[in-house]
Computed example of a mutant assay.
Amino acid sequence: MATIGPDDIDLGLDTFGDVTLDAAGERVSDADTIRNVVDQAVLADQVGLSFFGVGEHHRHEFAISSPEIVLAAAAARTDSIHLGTAVTVLSSDDPVRVYERFATLDAVSRGRAEVILGRGSFIESFPLFGYDLRDYEALFDEKLDLFSQLLTERPVTWQGSMRAPLTDANVFPKTENGLKAWVGVGGTPESVVRAARYGYGLMLAIIGGPAARFRPYVDLYHRSLDSFGRDQLPIGVHSPGHIAATDQQAWDEAYAGFESMNNTIGRERGWPPYSRMRFQHDVGPEGALYVGSPETVARKIATTVRTLGANRFDMKFSTGTLSHDKMMRSIELFGTEVQPLVRDLLG
């Protein structure tokens, strides 16, 4: 594996459109949250970051259920930053419509659209759109196969078991230079091999434990690409984080949001209550949270990039109730201080 140098890494941001609290401690409206996300994308572009990703969810903690519309609004106000999802839940969507929406976004943004496809760690979209959770694996595998053919932008003849077949289906609009696509993987070997088989970039969602434990999946991805006769493709990392002037300030600002989100999801999934001790472990070398001063976060990102040979690192900068103003400062520091520090460290 080639050594990752300062010119080989892109830094980006991801958000799920977490609904936050205002200065008075009141819940911000969904509408204001969405408008804030567009402002966050604009700032990310201004500070020179490479990517801004918006997640798809269908529950009250998150305001964004239609990422492409939010991204189109961001495209109209940005110049250079690539815009995509984190992730698009392909299992409960239609591949044709997903392609059409992102090809449209690609036109609006003048070639800056990307799509990260995933099965989704939240399952609300399945009953909402009439899908059976027993088909969780089969839906994604079949729809990913169809989407792969649509990416060729040639007429598609295809047949599966989950939807009606297509015969010489010509889908529009066509893009000017193709559509960049990734598969988001949470850490199963089958998902890694699937991404390689269909020729997608690999986006590793590392939200717990040390990044080094994902190295076997990176090696598997490279071996799988070779076995399928494909050229090497990019590898990305998605992990939560927050940046402030000092480690202590970043920890103090971020903790309440992480506690709120972990306890909300934990009640549904049987997790123990979150604690400050757990948080301090997670922000340390063996944890998956990139929370601290610019120097601390830059060092941890550089270590992860070297360990995994990653070409992109996306920090999920919104978590729970963390306020808009603190997120904006985090974005500013990520672009103006963390980004050059990471490149210096990799140099």
Rank of each mutant, 00 (worst) to 15 (best):
L179K: 08
G84H: 09
G320R: 02
F129H: 08
P285C: 02
A44K: 06
T307C: 12
F129D: 01
M328H: 09
S109E: 05
V185C: 13
G287V: 01
D10M: 13
P67S: 06
F313Q: 04
V115G: 07
E176Q: 14
P272E: 10
A41L: 06
S66P: 00
A169H: 09
D325F: 06
E142Q: 14
D7W: 07
R343N: 07
E61V: 11
S91I: 02
A2F: 11
L21T: 07
D22V: 05
M1T: 11
T157G: 11
S239T: 03
M328G: 00
G111V: 07
S80R: 15
A205Y: 02
A75W: 05
V237C: 06
G335L: 09
S125L: 15
D168V: 07
A72Q: 10
S239E: 00
L90Y: 01
S65F: 03
H58L: 12
D39V: 03
M328V: 10
T319A: 13
Y274W: 14
D18F: 12
A310P: 05
R267W: 00
V42I: 15
E153S: 07
L179S: 11
D344N: 14
G270A: 09
T188N: 09
T78S: 12
A195L: 04
R213A: 08
Q280D: 15
A31M: 06
G287C: 00
H242L: 02
V342W: 08
P127H: 06
L117A: 04
V192S: 02
R343C: 05
T304C: 13
D7K: 15
R267L: 12
S121V: 14
L166S: 10
D135R: 14
S224V: 10
S239R: 07
D8H: 14
I81F: 06
Q149Y: 11
H242M: 07
S91N: 05
P273C: 12
F258V: 08
G178F: 05
V87P: 00
Y290R: 07
D93N: 13
E137S: 12
M315E: 00
G25L: 03
N36A: 15
N311S: 15
P234W: 09
R197C: 08
I207Q: 11
D93K: 14
Q232L: 13
F228H: 14
I207P: 00
E137D: 15
G347V: 08
Y221W: 04
A256K: 12
D7F: 11
G241I: 02
Q232E: 12
D219P: 00
D45L: 02
D141S: 13
L43W: 05
E259V: 08
R35H: 12
I243F: 01
A63K: 03
L179I: 09
R276D: 01
S260E: 13
A212I: 09
D231S: 15
I123C: 00
E253A: 04
E253G: 07
R278M: 14
G84N: 05
N177W: 00
L150Q: 08
L128Y: 08
H57K: 04
P285N: 06
L21G: 06
G12A: 06
L128Q: 10
Y198F: 14
